[in-house]
Simulated scan of single mutants.
Amino acid sequence: MSEFWFFLEVLLSGMFAGTMYSLVALGFVLIFKASGVFNFAQGTMVLFAALCFVGFLEMGWPMAIAAIVTVAVMIAWAFAVERLVLRHLVNQAPIILFMATIGIAFFLEGFGELIWGAAVHPLDVGIPNDAWFIGPEGAMMVQQFDLAAAVIAGALVTVLALFFHYTRIGRALRAVADDHQAALSVGIPLNQIWVIVWSVAGFVALVAGIIWGSRLGVQFSLSIIALKALPVLILGGFTSVPGAIVGGLIIGGGEKLAEVFGAPALADLLEWVTGIGMSLGGIEEWFAYVIAMFFLLFRPQGLFGERIIERV
């Protein structure tokens, strides 16, 4: 029975970590749904939003005011991106837009370091980090912080899914992603739509930055977290908001199980085959990318993504 509870603890721990990956993946999905391009700058937006928030806190501002001003900063950033970059790239090839987001990412990272410095900023927003022990005789441990992050991610996914499917703006976003010129021809204000979606992605980046910053501290390595969101996107689908959370749960749970149970089993198998004892580790670092590779081979649109068929 204790082995069952340990297995469940490892699985839940991984799934909770997966919801934090999903928070980053949500921003990628939002931009992709509105422009049809992968936003390489999303990870840097997470970093920049977190830097602004913690910077305002260190200046002595109340937490609520710091959050509101940071949201305003991300909205201003969305206006700047639309006016200076996206407006000049309407109906360009996706690779052109993708290269533009790479430039945006490097600029934003350098701009953030120029304003806030490169030091690690500790962040505490009051999310409890105590452990709950549940099951018979407290056999399984659950961290309150992980549970809170999962609830926040689930709430964001629910709100955004409803927004995309049941609002006029959400339908316009999907139309813009399909064809820029066609959307303009039927009166959809492309520039306004891009500002809205980049603003929403900025808000999502702030939430992700606060959660990740509370756990790791606000530091420039946060932008690397975006790389962990890539397998989540591939599994869930680049156009699916619910797919981001499902993909995160699969990736988070799978990599934890692979690290705790898969590595010893693989080491035993290799020892049986080769007769050489060895200790394997680090599976957690690459397991998600292997799963993503198989999805790319057999279901490139992901679990919930839309299959794209181009006729020539």
Rank of each mutant, 00 (worst) to 15 (best):
A17V: 14
G275D: 05
T101C: 04
E271K: 06
Y289T: 02
G110L: 09
G14F: 05
V120F: 05
I276P: 01
F287M: 02
G213D: 12
F106T: 12
A226W: 00
P128D: 10
S199E: 10
Q144W: 06
A17W: 04
A34K: 06
G248M: 01
F220D: 11
I193Y: 09
F287T: 02
M59Y: 11
M140S: 13
A148S: 11
L230K: 04
L57V: 05
V85D: 03
Y289N: 06
G117R: 04
G103V: 03
R83M: 10
G117Q: 05
T19E: 04
V69S: 10
L26N: 03
I193P: 15
A100H: 06
L173D: 11
G236F: 04
A80K: 14
G18I: 05
I104A: 08
G247E: 09
G248S: 01
P122G: 06
W198H: 13
F133V: 03
Q144N: 12
V46N: 00
V46R: 01
W272R: 13
A150T: 15
L47G: 07
A244P: 08
G277F: 01
F16A: 15
I169P: 11
E137M: 08
A288Y: 01
G248E: 02
M1R: 08
V290W: 02
F261A: 13
L156I: 14
E310L: 00
S221G: 15
A76E: 11
L184F: 14
A288K: 00
F111Q: 02
M278H: 00
A64D: 10
I291C: 03
L160R: 08
M20I: 05
L108N: 09
